[in-house]
Computed example of a mutant assay.
Amino acid sequence: MQLPKLTGSVLSGLHCFLIAADQMSFTRAAEILYLTQSAVSHKIKNLEASLGVQLFIRQPRKLLLTEEGKRLKAVVAHNFGDIVHEIRDLKTLELSGDLNVSVPPTFAQTWLLPRLKHFIDKYPALRFHLRTRNDLVDFQTESFDCAIYFGHGKYAGLHSEKLMDETILPVCSHEYATVHNLYEQPDNLISCMLLHDAAPWARAGRNDEWQYWAQRQGVTLPESGCTFDRADLALQAAERGLGVAMGRMSFIAEQLATNRLVTPINRPVRSPLSYYVVCRQEVVSSPRIKAFQQWITSEISD
């Protein structure tokens, strides 16, 4: 398929084609574009003539994409998405507008939220939008500027900047540790209720974090336990004497300082995963993303 020149008519036709291909209806495309149905049909015919290929199979009550139409739709959708992102970046060079960030739930609640006012005060013209989730973002189809991941830092087609490492060790209430004789007695974990974060990182199993720690300590773990879909819920359950949770040091500083949690088996292990700021390669230089990443780095240093 050859495209001799990207004239204004061709670009307009490509936009019209994308809407029609999404809707699979010239009538619905016309409503979205505030055009008549005949105008949409005329734009598509002109585009087909310019490209020298048929894009739609027109049937009495429905449209079908030809193979060429399917290929063109995929390319146009991807590149128009890049154009939208770039225009938004150009409009926000002065650190105004929207910043959409995806963050793991417990990291958001225990680490980011207590510090977020500093960032908002520093960049008052930015509208900060925080969404929490444990799974990875699809940057091609979702409108996130960047995300914080707890992982290995290698994500195909994406740019990642390491923020900080993590250390893990078991935590519980003082009363629970006393009753179960846990102080420096790791073998007694076998008789305890383990509290699991069911999704400590993307695609992890519910036992993965506990097993990683136990294997490095030579400790046998019980089969039974409770699972939670957020680490902070497991930690709250530990505070209330339900059992022993695997604590991350970045999450539990306040609970340890106020004795709401204790570390009866004081054998910390360096987590195999770290925290990263992740974004699409083409927006690495976005002033909004750079400001956010630099601010987090300075907060960690402090």
Rank of each mutant, 00 (worst) to 15 (best):
A238G: 00
F56W: 04
L55I: 03
V101I: 15
G8L: 08
F292K: 00
C16G: 00
R288M: 09
R71T: 12
Q59W: 12
I168A: 08
A231K: 07
C192S: 03
L55P: 08
L273P: 00
T258L: 02
S9P: 08
P200M: 02
D165G: 13
A257Q: 08
L113Y: 07
F107T: 08
R248F: 03
S285M: 13
Q59L: 12
L221R: 00
E223V: 08
S285H: 14
L3K: 11
S38V: 15
E239R: 09
R133N: 07
V262K: 01
V75F: 08
S160P: 05
S102K: 10
L136C: 08
A20S: 10
L72A: 07
H15Q: 11
V75R: 09
R230P: 02
V277L: 14
L169H: 03
H129R: 10
A39Y: 11
S191E: 11
N100R: 13
R133V: 04
S25Q: 07
C16R: 00
I44H: 03
K122T: 09
P272S: 05
T110R: 13
I252W: 02
G241T: 04
Q59M: 14
A108V: 02
F107C: 02
D302N: 12
W201D: 07
P105F: 07
Q140K: 14
S12E: 15
N100Y: 12
Y183I: 14
I296R: 00
A198H: 11
S160A: 12
